[in-house]
């Protein structure tokens, strides 16, 4: 896939989350990592790339196709993508299975048996087959996040966008979830990942977009970024993160 933004701005009230962010990935990037300090605009850029947020100005181009700005058209694009959030954001009144089945039936036109079959297949693949009937509160953080990944994967999304998927998890659960993401990446799933897990990003990403203060400071092949970042901010960030690891 090829991702590109041109002078994208997005505000939350007075806060300028994206301040004319522009970048372009290589033609065949498969796993794009969004890195950078907290509050730098990673999560906002991820939402804009997936069509979940509409920018105030600027253009987003995915595989040379500009994303529509009109809300109904944007929803159609959004439905081709899958999202996973830091706080899991499963629906608490539904079981793990129902969390996956409901969007498949309502949004993607699956019949109930088809949707159940697809959901159970994914839950099994993510090691949750025994927990399909449980509500989110009955699952551990790692299990909830795996269920959320299953929900995002169920309609076979073009792009899987993960927003700091392990930030709320302890190291063991983080490992569980990162294993799943690595398998997906190795299986050919196109992924955009906002994360602070630098060593993980180094293993799976083939392109890195580094953001700070709402601007893209650097956008280059992952290998180059981790070996020799151009921007001083990126060098400082990498040094800071690797100090205790």
């Amino acid at each position: 896939m090829k991702l590109e933004t041109r002078r994208v701005t997005k505000r939350y009230g007075d806060f300028l989350a994206l301040d004319g962010a522009s970048f372009q990935t290589g033609k065949d990037a498969r796993v794009v990592a969004l890195l950078g300090p907290s509050g730098g605009g990673k999560s906002t850029l991820l939402r804009v790339l997936g069509g979940l947020l509409l920018p105030e100005s600027g253009e987003v181009v995915v595989n040379d196709q500009p994303l529509p700005q009109e809300p109904n058209e944007a929803l159609k694009t959004l439905r081709k993508n899958g999202f996973v959030f830091q706080g899991y954001n499963l629906f608490p009144h539904l079981s793990a299975l129902q969390n996956i089945v409901l969007p498949l039936c309502v949004v993607h036109g699956f019949s109930e048996p088809e949707a159940k079959e697809r959901a159970l297949e994914l839950l099994k693949r993510l090691g949750l087959e025994e927990h399909f009937h449980k509500r989110p509160a009955e699952l551990s953080g790692g299990q909830q996040q795996r269920a959320a990944i299953a929900r995002a994967l169920a309609p076979k999304p073009d792009l899987l966008l993960l927003d700091e998927p392990t930030s709320a998890l302890d190291p063991v659960m983080t490992g569980e979830v990162l294993d799943v993401i690595r398998e997906l990446a190795e299986g050919g799933q196109q992924i955009v990942l906002a994360t602070h897990e630098i060593s993980f990003a180094r293993k799976v990403a083939d392109w890195v977009v580094f953001l700070a203060k709402g601007r893209v400071e650097e956008s280059c092949a992952a290998e180059q970024f981790f070996e020799q970042p151009n921007s001083a901010l990126a060098r400082e960030y990498l040094d800071g993160l690797s100090r205790y690891r």
Binding site: G50, L78, N89
Partner: peptide, 10 residues
């Protein structure tokens, strides 16, 4: 976050 999750699943 629930509204966003609902939008995110389409």
């Amino acid at each position: 976050s629930q509204r966003e999750a609902a939008r995110a699943v389409g």
